[in-house]
Design a protein around this nucleic acid. Sequence first.
DNA 1: GGATTATGTACAGATTATGGACTAAAGCGA
DNA 2: TCGCTTTAGTCCATAATCTGTACATAATCC
Lengths: 380, 380
Amino acid sequence: MSSRGVRHDSMRARNLAVVLATIHRSGPHTRAALAERTGLTKTTVSSLVADLIEAGVVTESGAVRGGERGRPGVAVSLSGHRVAALGLEINIDYLAACVVDLTREVRLRRVRPADNRNSDPARILEGLRDLVKEVTAEAEADGLRLAGAALAVPGTVEGGVLRSAPHLGWRDVRVADLVDPPFAIDNEANLAALGELWFGSRQPDFLYVSGEIGIGAGLVVEGTVFRGTFGLAGELGHVVVVPDGPVCRCGGRGCLEVYAGQDALLGELASVGELVARLESGDGRAVRACERAGHALGVALTSAVHLLDPGEIVLGGIFAPLFRWLEGPVSEGLRARLGQMRGAPPALAVSGTGGDAAVLGAAGLIIQQILAEPARLLDL
Amino acid sequence: MSSRGVRHDSMRARNLAVVLATIHRSGPHTRAALAERTGLTKTTVSSLVADLIEAGVVTESGAVRGGERGRPGVAVSLSGHRVAALGLEINIDYLAACVVDLTREVRLRRVRPADNRNSDPARILEGLRDLVKEVTAEAEADGLRLAGAALAVPGTVEGGVLRSAPHLGWRDVRVADLVDPPFAIDNEANLAALGELWFGSRQPDFLYVSGEIGIGAGLVVEGTVFRGTFGLAGELGHVVVVPDGPVCRCGGRGCLEVYAGQDALLGELASVGELVARLESGDGRAVRACERAGHALGVALTSAVHLLDPGEIVLGGIFAPLFRWLEGPVSEGLRARLGQMRGAPPALAVSGTGGDAAVLGAAGLIIQQILAEPARLLDL
DNA sequence: GGATTATGTACAGATTATGGACTAAAGCGA
DNA sequence: TCGCTTTAGTCCATAATCTGTACATAATCC
């Protein structure tokens, strides 16, 4: 609980957010419908909507007839023409950026291939800065105002500081400070979960499992990402599957990653595409690797379901193209192990976003912030 | 996000809560100090404090000199004399109740031994109703007004309905409806975690591990219990320790409970006291059982730390008296398995509450509600 | 075209916080 | 002891915001 008292302007800020959230959640509304939904009076809603229009987050979008009789209302809907969010991602082999407007339309996408393994943070951040400049200029030329930016990184983040990104070879990098204006940073898996929420037409409760070189997970409960105490929650890749199994790069033993990480799945194959090809041709070794991974995932997800209680489980990253082969072993494992503890195990689904859930989710985080505090756009 | 607009009275309700929370968190304050802390004006604070005094949640408690000079202020502190909360618990072999006032003073405790295994819900609830009547009468004779009640049950709770309590033999019991006024219900482990927060002088971030016949856990993040999507989070007892281990009563295999549940620990011994005695005398079998349990706990907690990211781990219930013998294996397991993933594993601590963390936590839940919405006390 | 119905705005009134003036109560210094 | 300074708490006029009623507007129904 914030310990600051609230004043008149906080009340208005809150009401602006309530009206905007209603439009966002349930589509265009007339002012009258908004008044009914929010419990505010028509007068107040009119005044709030006027402010939201001025802030550029909503527009009037034509007449609607409510019942059969009476004066038709004017629909107020989210506006995609003024305000947008910038999503960024640093990953092992690329930098990516995207611009998403308030209607969730992806307005711009940029991917720059790069080899960032064991790289120098300063050099990569220089490249990121360039990318930001380029994309910002293009967005502004499009008439968009970028209300904020967020960055996805393949590592653990604590209070805006990148603590450890083993594959990049980075430790304790204060990424946010190096770019102006400073932006939000979060773990790839957390943001991919948000990406799934915003762009994969998901229900607001699920566990997104991100298969990359490592395996991460982001839990979304009631539309927000659960981060734990230090922001380190969701490290599904190191859940114990076999207590005295092979040593993992984390120092533990028998972690999920050992059985279902990219390296374990691909073996000597060069890419996921190749693995899929082998699977389709019924190659025994590939099928066995996939079954082993599915089995391990079933075990780890059983623990995860007991501890996190997700509404649904979504497989993303490299698990998405492999879903056909993973689904069976994973869901059987869950069903058998969860037993009578719950009615039925959470449903298993494929990720609805393409490979770029994380960048999109980064933009989604900013959109979430805008929707939560539209008043900030008015102060500037 | 609630979708209801806020009005003047919500603003005031919020400010009442802010002032009260400040006093609760940081002890007695003068009105001037409250004004500074909350950012409200002295005028507003005076008016809010007047309401809080009327509601009976705070009192003036003597003069305090702030600096060296100037008129001394009047300290405003929590009042334990009017408002209190009722905590209740149904467990395998007893019914319990307690009354706790706003200063966290336990004003009343009642435990009624009973054999509730495989019992008839209606009969037990009858007994609970009697207990409530008795305790309510005593509290009222003491001048206390019970602002609400909450009930801890050894089972899973979903939206006020007790879904499944295997040891009681209950399924789908609508407990809340059967008592008037209806009260909040939650899982024993979740409420024990709150009990630990309120009465064990804990930091606001920890995972409370409740060793009873089953093993549960309640995660507290920033002072609130994490419940997951359906309120089923924290089922530590069924986290997988050995994927093809012995069958557990839940239907799974190799669950933590199989290795560290009460039955596994006690073997043929009749009570935890007896086990402690054996351990103290160095009985080999007892020591080995304890080591095995500690090892299994280390494995399950490793998964829990990766997924939940708790600030600290608190062992309660039957694990509390066994802490001396469990601490070593558990913390070694955590240290070895967590490896380089985090700076250091979360600290391991014993529960600070006695055996009745759950009842106390039930009362704590209500106190939390009062502190969050003091305005409700004024409306009546 | 007039009655009916629903939308959206205008204006007075209510609620609550603010800010400066004022009163109260203590110590300090002469 | 008296006045000065300092801090606490209250009073009152003002400002921000929401409410509620009245009203103008725009559609359908007959």
